[in-house]
Nucleic acid binder design. Sequence first.
DNA 1: TCGCCCTCCTC
DNA 2: CCATGTGAGGGCGA
Length: 362
Amino acid sequence: MVRVVGHIDVDYFFAQVEEVLNPALKTKPVVVCVYSGRSQSSGVVSTANYLARSFGVSSGMSISAAQKRLSGKDAEFIPMKQEKYKPFSERVMQIVREHVDALEQTGIDEAFFDITRFCNEDYGSARITAVGIKNRIRQAEGLTVSIGIGKTKSVAKIASAFTKPDGLTIIEPSKTVDFLGPLPVAKLYGVGPKTASLLESIGIRTIGELATSNIDDITHLLGRKLASRLHDAANGADDELVVESQKVAQFSRIITLKKDTSSAEEAYLELLPAVKELAARMDSEGYACRTLTVIGVLSNLSVRTKSRSFETPINTPLVLSEQTLVLLSALSESVQAEFRRVGVRVSDLVDIKGQASLNQYL
DNA sequence: TCGCCCTCCTC
DNA sequence: CCATGTGAGGGCGA
């Protein structure tokens, strides 16, 4: 059986939503920013519209660098607010869901989908479905999206990024190897700068070279799991299914301190509201955690963590905050440096929905 | 298994 | 003082 797998991605999502909310922005450079609160314009660019990008603005760039590139350009700098974009995300996903057999959301603005049955394994029919999805989203929400379709998730994902914005790239199964072969390995999901340079060190630059490489060499370089996954993906032979819902395994909050400090207590006071929010979320979603981790980003941006596991899962604001302070103090003592950012993560989540009533019978 | 680190992903 | 925030996965030593 040949699968028909798609990947959809809303173009420059946050900035495009801002344009929809305020169409006058469409003719201006738009930069959606995460302000850290440290100083007037400290923080980074989350995303920017294509006009802003044409002036060299890109994700991850400091806001001040973006300001420099856009000075005198009548640009809009807008603080990012998740809640503002969430409803757009939900409506877009709902539209896609109506046209596919299965949907796997992997981010606020992207998802894999499977249309093998819906399209009777026919790629011509897949094109019609994809165009239909694009049109519906444009009509209903005024948003453009890019879609890629291929025989595996890996191919679909590369295809959706191949042509954008407002793109549609369909790779017929028989064309898979020709499509992938010439592309740089960094196009593969899971290959970032570090992995790409490791591969380059043994002469592998393209996906085609990776596909025909010796798996033992790759395993030696990257470890068993990653090597096998990448080798399969490079051959267009990854067989991962589109899975409806992936339950969260952890959640975390991290904040930037007003100023660097080596005092655990000082850092703790700024972190406390975030800990309370985590506790509230755990409560509302019915979780307790077996592991609590405190994260410290030092002045030199290196990251250190300190974690502890509990026999009995914890979830109350009081216990979570107490343990956060304990771990933060221990971390502070072990690093002998100032914190720039601190965070807290809960993992090994245990479902405790209905536990309260269950306890009555114990 | 635990604790810690690294790498990657998205915007 | 330019350098956010969230989550997944895996390697490795003890």
